Simulated scan of single mutants.
Amino acid sequence: MWRSIASNALTMMIVALFLAGGVVIWGKRQYETAGPLDTPVCLRVESGSNLKKVSATLENEGAITNSTIFRLGADYTDKANKLKAGSFLVPAGASMAEIVDIVTRGGASTCGTEVVFRVGVTSSVVEVRELDPTTNRYVEKAEFDPAAAEKPAEYTKVRGQADTRYRIAVAEGVTSWQVVDALSRIDLLEGEAELPEEGRLAPDSYEVEVGDTRASVLTRMADKQALILEEAWKNRVDGLPINSAAEALILASIIEKETGVAEERRTVASVFINRLNRGMRLQTDPTVIYGVTKGQGVLGRGLRQSELRRETPWNTYLIDGLPPTPIANPGKASIEAALDPAQTKYVYFVADGSGGHVFAETLDEHNRNVAKWRQIEAERAKQDDNQ
């Protein structure tokens, strides 16, 4: 009898173990299998939240099928206590295992609200925008002048949220003064900032956080520009009339200000290289403008004849060779163009009316191009008068 009971008990234990094993296998499959989410969602994890709250939110959003399995899986993989605050993009079909990894790995938020401080050549602007997870595109919520005394409600609201991301986007061709002036108007940054040397800041996008110092942001920009210049100088072509990386930076800044067409940079660079090789003056308006403004703002009008004749260290109509300093902060492409220009015989160029330029090897050809440009300008002026 006891033998029979023991046998039955052993059988039941074996069956229970098999059932438990089956449950574990089933649970593991549920945890690792693609989830039911049809479209991406933005999951916001509040500071101080826990996995129970997050799993309930995910279940309500239809991102997971079972919140208990979600929590057990996170606990089994030792991630239950690694939950990070922020806004995280959960892609369609993400498994529970993938979602746990997303909300515990750390790093910057991948969706939600972003504030972008854009530092432009002619103006600066602040954008408040939010990522639409279904289209993976940002939707603008507000845009305003950073110098405005009263900030829009959209900005004030997100400014107090811990998961709001901040980014400073610096355009190619801005001056160091413009960057420092813009940073002084960004209220989430702290401290004073000295004016860096012209040209020594890399135009790019920089993630920042509340409490970062203005000086530290400028240091990051300067360090990046130094690396770009070092690499480009190391890879320069032979035979250039440029004696140092500092001179390359000066030429790159002129190229940056002369053309906004990416495909033209190396051709524009070739014009200036050819002029330097022939001992011709560069005769470029952006350098004259810098002599007038010193990089502090935009001229906002055409150059006067008196300014073209004014003696400044940057007036390349009057000085030989390069000016003493850059006239703006050039981007990587312009630096590379200065040190690897196109192989041409061009020594002249003028606007073509479409945003680009037309190039010439001889003065006669250049004069014909100039005449065409003046005709285009006259026709545009006539059209404006008739409107």
Score class of each variant (00 low, 15 high):
residue 57 T to F: 03
residue 59 E to K: 15
residue 59 E to R: 15
residue 61 E to N: 13
residue 61 E to W: 03
residue 62 G to W: 12
residue 62 G to C: 09
residue 62 G to V: 07
residue 64 I to N: 00
residue 64 I to S: 01
residue 64 I to R: 00
residue 64 I to V: 14
residue 65 T to A: 14
residue 65 T to L: 12
residue 65 T to Y: 07
residue 66 N to I: 00
residue 66 N to S: 13
residue 67 S to Y: 00
residue 67 S to Q: 09
residue 67 S to C: 02
residue 69 I to D: 05
residue 70 F to P: 08
residue 71 R to M: 15
residue 72 L to N: 02
residue 72 L to R: 03
residue 73 G to E: 09
residue 74 A to P: 10
residue 74 A to G: 14
residue 74 A to Y: 06
residue 76 Y to S: 12
residue 77 T to K: 13
residue 79 K to Q: 15
residue 79 K to I: 02
residue 80 A to P: 01
residue 80 A to Q: 07
residue 80 A to L: 11
residue 80 A to M: 03
residue 80 A to K: 09
residue 81 N to W: 11
residue 81 N to C: 01
residue 82 K to P: 01
residue 84 K to I: 03
residue 84 K to L: 03
residue 85 A to I: 03
residue 85 A to W: 08
residue 85 A to K: 11
residue 85 A to G: 13
residue 85 A to Y: 07
residue 86 G to E: 08
residue 87 S to W: 01
residue 87 S to E: 14
residue 88 F to G: 04
residue 88 F to N: 03
residue 88 F to T: 08
residue 88 F to H: 01
residue 89 L to S: 04
residue 89 L to N: 04
residue 90 V to Y: 07
residue 90 V to P: 12
residue 91 P to H: 05
residue 91 P to C: 02
residue 92 A to N: 13
residue 92 A to L: 03
residue 94 A to D: 02
residue 94 A to K: 12
residue 94 A to N: 05
residue 95 S to H: 06
residue 96 M to F: 04
residue 96 M to I: 08
residue 97 A to E: 14
residue 98 E to M: 06
residue 100 V to P: 03
residue 100 V to M: 04
residue 101 D to N: 15
residue 102 I to D: 07
residue 103 V to C: 05
residue 105 R to A: 13
residue 105 R to K: 15
residue 105 R to T: 14
residue 105 R to C: 02
residue 106 G to L: 07
residue 106 G to V: 06
residue 109 S to F: 13
residue 109 S to L: 09
residue 110 T to M: 06
residue 110 T to G: 10
